[in-house]
Nucleic acid binder design. Structure first.
Lengths: 235, 235
DNA sequence: CGCTCGATTGATAGCGTTCAAATTGTGTGG
DNA sequence: CCACACAATTTGAACGCTATCAATCGAGCG
């Protein structure tokens, strides 16, 4: 269960410059957003923020932590449809008068800003910067979803896993370490694979010296080797 | 190669009420859209409208026909990421200052309205209805992409194919016939399967009397049977 | 220390691909 | 309208990848 710990203030928000409000002047933050009924949610790992099918009354911005958006089949098989990082906006299905189309669950301890969609919609209508900022995010979501469909539909297991790792470590130098926040099951649910398949290839690549892992952190030692497995143009 | 056959007029557009302009009054159509540099493209089957990676200068509305949006791996494996029907808007990556993220190809003889993104963007900024109409479409695109990721990542071959068929025939009564515009290869590229796998299950279900096919048209005879294969809550 | 849960590893099975050949369907020109 | 060529689909057989089932290992924790 998430804990509501306060109202939150855009002016002092730690991730304001990553949020949809990053383009707004302080004047507007002081006037237009003053009356927002925002709340800050403190969540531990595995908290459910909302469930697929619930009426969508709030949008959310992730301030800290990691969140997975999932969909499930009646038989329990689960697909992670998106992984959210700091600054990401989610839960906006209500803008189209729809219930949430997926379930949102924290992957780690997280801090979330909750915005009533009604408030955000008013702001959207009167403020073109907000409008454009949200639009840019949705278009990015669509592009990333398209990329993901290629991963899921056209790639084989090792290709999926290798491109996932390269993306996860994007921007890092070889030998840098980064926390692999996801469990084997979550990686599998994201890539459409089983725990065992994920584990097998990770083990193999550790044996081959492509990759190191320790205490939940990973480091890509030989990114060229992984890239050959990945079957893609990810640089 | 698409053929440019004219400028097109919103007031007389055959699919205006399915387009993003459906909410606009005739006044606005007469004033704001008057200066749009629209073009009508007449395409035969398999025409390429744009290619992934090209700068995105135009958005398009499909007036008639069918279009597939595809992405490919370096080795040639292809994924269809979206199938467009009459009234659908596509090619808007340029709104986010991005190149096209996929390739758009006609599946059948089609008629397309081409709009310069610059024009559309101006209209978006000054007209909240257009803005909202486009937003609603993008949000729908995101939801459908999420649904598709579940199909691709969590379902087995017969489940994918059965839900595809049910969706294709949505709204029809049993015994109604509908054109199955896609080839076996295209169905496969959409569902992440091979031609042969698609063909095998279709044959099996025809043998079992779930389905009939003739001259490119299909009819679901036993939708309950298919639904059991589909492993989903599609009604 | 022993419990629990996640990860690893092995063995096996089966699903879907691949390769190949046969068949059907479609469009073209005579 | 038919004959032909070519493309799409179907069908068969065999392989290989990934899932499944099962056992073991290891880390974290009370």
């Amino acid at each position: 269960m998430p804990n509501i710990t306060g109202k939150g203030h855009c002016l002092t928000c730690p991730i304001r410059y990553r949020s949809i409000f990053s383009g707004l002047s302080e004047e507007i933050l002081k006037t237009d957003i003053k009356d927002f009924h925002t709340s800050i949610l403190e969540c531990k790992s595995n908290d459910v923020i909302y469930q697929q099918g619930e009426p969508s009354k709030y949008a959310y911005t992730l301030r800290e932590g990691l969140i997975k958006l999932t969909k499930s089949l009646p038989n329990g098989r689960t697909q992670i449809v998106r992984i959210l990082k700091k600054g990401d906006l989610f839960g906006f299905d209500g803008f189209a008068d729809k219930a949430y189309n997926h379930t949102a669950i924290t992957v780690s301890k997280s801090e979330i800003c909750r915005l009533p969609l009604k408030d955000l919609d008013q702001l959207r209508i009167k403020n073109i910067e907000i409008n454009s900022a949200m639009m840019a995010r949705w278009l990015k979501n669509i592009r990333e979803a398209e990329d993901m469909m290629l991963e899921l539909g056209a790639k084989k297991a090792p290709e999926k896993l290798a491109s996932f790792l390269l993306k996860w470590c994007e921007g890092l130098d070889e030998k840098d370490w980064i926390k692999l926040e996801l469990s084997r099951r979550e990686i599998g649910d994201f890539l459409g694979l089983t725990i065992e398949t994920v584990s097998r290839f990770l083990s193999e690549w550790k044996r081959l010296g492509f990759l190191e892992e320790s205490k939940g952190f990973i480091s890509i030692v030989n990114s060229e080797g992984l890239r050959k497995k990945a079957c893609s143009t990810v640089s």
